[in-house]
Design a protein around this nucleic acid. Structure first.
Lengths: 229, 229
DNA sequence: TAGATTGTTAATCGATTAACAATC
DNA sequence: TAGATTGTTAATCGATTAACAATC
């Protein structure tokens, strides 16, 4: 079957993207994120045009073949004796991880944690913009935190439609978390990032990511124990 | 060689503990944490004395053999037809993960995030107590946040000695993070939990856990992309 | 060219799952 | 007892690492 070059390119791109995504596992995503961070942030490499898989592997204390495999998976080719083009690598990883699209988020609960997250400016480098906060405390409503405003809880659904919000960030007290999650789901949210120290349940089609800070403590308590090195 | 029962029991316990710890990997720790959370928190099981590996596995959507293997690794035995003793399981997991010892922590940076963490009451369920905050803003010094007080930055070293602080929590701005980490290390801290959006370097013997909230965004951006699912 | 680095296949390693006898 | 659940061995699966020819 004959093909006209270009005509199907967009379609083929999408198909290729989907094929790639099927194969990318969670651990790979985490590693891609690490490559991205060190390629982008490390002063050491900021001026370089080309970085070898060995350099990345040494920096991250991992195997160089792994780096090449991961980069090959997302379509990146290196050049023998040279390595990988730094800018291209950054660009493709951003593309694959979805940082080049824009998703808007809403923070539910304008307390200390919610406020701190709203002020976290570099979310936008990762394709996420906090568009609004909601709270039920009249004293907080109308205030500006970072670049966004605190709205009354009643406007939750309205704001989600208006700003086309896809991600709900729960920084409310634990006892309100499930109810707030339900409201977000009913309002058509697609993903929930839960900071409340409680497990919540959502429909299967909703992306749910728990951020239980207490659960992270095991990283210290386990390794600090006597008898451990 | 003959052994006197009891005489070596403490020694043997420690030896056994160390042997176990050698074998416990990061993924296992994470799973133990999940078992702990669902055994402890799920209302469903709060009244039960016995829970089977199958029930836990179903709840967490994993393989039941895995649950039995993990529990066997930390010395827990189940009873055929019954399952595992719920309280004993909780107790042993707490023990292994180190939640029964007490470690004190200091928060460096009494902003929104630092304040929110200081108020997170259930850290103490995991063996961690926030003993103090430090900040260089004179307006904040002396204030009480949750149950602890904000001290001047100059007292950092003094406070670490006084309260026997083992964990430093960095919630200061990114540009101050490395310097604050250095001060913590010089003052004899053993672990650092870094919330500042920058990579910091510490000596190898220090436990370092980065909590880059921005990096978590990939959990949403990747899966929200068009062409996925 | 010589040598460094890639890309890929094969080998190893470890983790997960299946099977089933033992047991209460 | 019959049947459910454990504990353990063996089989499978997948991920990581080693080896090495290809290449600039």
């Amino acid at each position: 079957m004959k093909r006209v070059a270009g005509r199907n390119s967009l379609k083929n791109d999408t198909r290729k993207k989907m094929r790639i995504y099927k194969e990318i596992r969670r651990v790979t995503i985490e590693r891609l994120m690490q490559y991205y961070l060190c390629l982008r942030e490390e002063d050491l490499w900021k001026e370089k045009n080309v970085v070898s898989s060995t350099q990345i592997a040494d920096y991250l204390d991992m195997d160089d073949t792994q780096v090449r495999k991961d980069l090959a998976l997302i379509g990146l080719r290196g050049r023998p004796r040279m390595g990988f083009d730094r800018k291209e690598t950054i660009h493709v990883i951003r593309q694959v991880l979805g940082f080049d699209e824009i998703y808007r988020a809403m923070i539910v609960g304008a307390g200390g944690l919610g406020g701190a997250i709203a002020r976290y400016v570099n979310f936008k480098n990762y394709g996420v913009i906090v568009a609004a906060l909601v709270d039920n405390d009249p004293k907080k409503i109308g205030k500006k935190i970072g670049t966004c405003r605190v709205y009354p809880l009643e406007q939750l659904k309205f704001l989600i439609k208006k700003f086309e919000i896809k991600i709900g960030i729960l920084t409310c007290p634990a006892k309100a978390a499930q109810e707030m999650a339900n409201r977000l789901v009913r309002a058509g949210i697609q993903a929930i990032w839960n900071f409340a120290p409680i497990n919540i349940a959502v429909p299967k089609n909703i992306i749910l990511h728990h951020q239980h800070l207490s659960a992270e403590l095991v990283n210290f308590t386990f390794y600090l124990q006597k008898g451990r090195k």
